[in-house]
């Protein structure tokens, strides 16, 4: 990823790997720019979220915009109080981790008009053909339309994050390419990148265009 816009939004079906992609993109962006933030707008699932990586962000100077109540005793579905910095502070480059599905995208409604007006954003749909409810292009398009409707903002590109967790083989990634192409054709949107866990990167980097290596967030045994 070279040409980051000021705001990069990551949306998708829940469990598609949005948070992991968002965390990795924020770390990449920080290498290119100084004033970087990651915003956790996921108010749907309190189990895995951006705030889990807060130490890592602190260490490399990335601002975390997240509800101060996340992972606390008053963990209600609350948006961060400094959320408007995303649209007000034009010097900031932001990665936004949006909640899963249309319900997660509802939280975007408040910001979407300003983001669209400023028009310096990329709205990315994270797709994974190995997830049970987005196994083909048509069902994926259905989820995309639901998200756009709820979030009041249109997608500009796709991130093919098709994977089977730690069991992913290079072949699994390769066989996901035709799916990503089909989603791309049907939606008329480019596949901005295909993502793989970094240990698979060398096997695949000469076979796949715009391949992006990811580190995984901590996972249980």
């Amino acid at each position: 990823m070279k040409d980051f816009k000021r705001i990069t939004l990551l949306c998708g079906h829940y469990g598609s790997g949005k948070t992991n992609v968002a965390v990795n993109m924020a770390l990449m962006l920080k290498k290119q720019r100084d004033n970087v933030a990651i915003a956790d707008l996921d108010i749907v699932n309190p189990y895995f979220r951006t705030k889990d990586s807060s130490k890592e962000f602190e260490n490399c100077g990335i601002r975390l915009i997240a509800s101060s109540f996340a992972n606390s005793n008053v963990d209600i579905p609350a948006l961060p109080q400094d959320m408007y910095a995303i649209t007000d502070d034009k010097a900031l480059s932001v990665i936004i981790d949006v909640g899963g599905d249309d319900r997660g995208a509802l939280a975007l409604g408040r910001l979407a008009p300003q983001i669209v007006e400023e028009n310096d954003y990329e709205m990315l749909m994270v797709i994974n053909c190995y997830r049970p409810l987005t196994r083909d292009a048509l069902s994926t398009i259905e989820v995309m339309r639901e998200i756009e409707y709820a979030g009041h903002i249109k997608f500009t590109g796709l991130v093919n994050n098709s994977n089977l967790g730690v069991m992913t083989t290079p072949d699994d990634v390769i066989s996901s390419l035709s799916y990503a192409d089909e989603v791309s054709k049907l939606s008329n949107l480019p596949v901005v990148c295909t993502t793989v866990e970094k240990s698979l990167y060398n096997d695949l980097s000469d076979k796949i265009e715009n391949l992006l290596p990811l580190s995984l967030q901590a996972r249980p045994v």
Binding site: G15, N128, C129, Y130, R131, P132, R135, D136, N163, L164, G165, M167, D172, S175, Y179
Partner: peptide, 16 residues
Amino acid sequence: MADKVLMKGNEAIAEA
């Protein structure tokens, strides 16, 4: 498509 799907434990219970 693929024979294997990537599922959350909760989803696996529902589908099964």
